[in-house]
Design a protein around this nucleic acid. Structure first.
Lengths: 117, 117
DNA sequence: CCAATACTTAAGTATATACTTAAGTATCAT
DNA sequence: ATGATACTTAAGTATATACTTAAGTATTGG
């Protein structure tokens, strides 16, 4: 039932600017203008991306004085990572079962190999 | 320089219908109508989602006779998974270094503990 | 052959995104 | 107090998404 959270998290990660922001923040906290500095877009645009990131839970921020400091929230990274890992694991188990089946079938049609061991 | 690929992959995963399709395909190949059956949308809509999934490389499909069979392409799952895992790992290394620094600082200011052992 | 099946294409609509510029509002330094 | 700093809000625009229905095109079973 965390579908909406995954929607927001994957959507947040689907934009190169936002991934750049996450990448920067994974090296440690930063202010909004530090985040904006390497980006070729206006500050309001950075704010909007930041809102998307915060809306997904990937990033948190707190304002002290006139500076807003942003940091990565690793829980959401883990949630997204796990969703993918589970699909991949399921696909790999499926592959393994297929391989087993093919092995079994092969040794039925070619039992010399099994009996010769 | 695989930014565009990551864009497309995360975007593909940001929609619950497409995630449902990937989830179904991670259990094994399926035809377009098998994919559509549990979904409450029209077949053309399913086709459009399929095109997004194929465009990202998450899914491949092949038509034989009048049936198109779709299957997961795990390479792209792995690519997306790795991008996230690397950011998380970087964040965790950063945390570790911070912990080390705090430990070192603590033992400087409170050397009784270290010397009493 | 011809009708059912399994997609496929086309066209239209409504909403959401990713920006922009202009005009704010608090803080901070002097 | 006042100018500079660091955001923040508002409003507008252009493009992209996620659907829909209607009308195709190949395949296949009888």
């Amino acid at each position: 039932m965390q579908a909406a959270l995954l929607d927001r998290t994957f959507h947040a990660l689907s934009d190169p600017t936002r991934r750049a922001m996450v990448q920067r923040l994974s090296r440690g906290p930063a202010s909004v203008s530090e985040l904006a500095k390497p980006l070729a877009i206006s500050l309001p645009a950075v704010m909007q991306h930041l809102q998307v990131l915060e809306g997904s839970g990937l990033v948190r921020s707190e304002k002290t004085g006139r500076v807003r400091t942003c940091s990565v929230e690793p829980k959401m990274l883990t949630l997204a990572e796990h969703w993918i890992a589970e699909r991949r694991a399921q696909w790999e188990r499926k592959l393994d079962r297929l391989a087993d089946y093919l092995d079994a079938t092969a040794s039925e049609n070619d039992n010399a190999k099994e009996e010769s061991k």
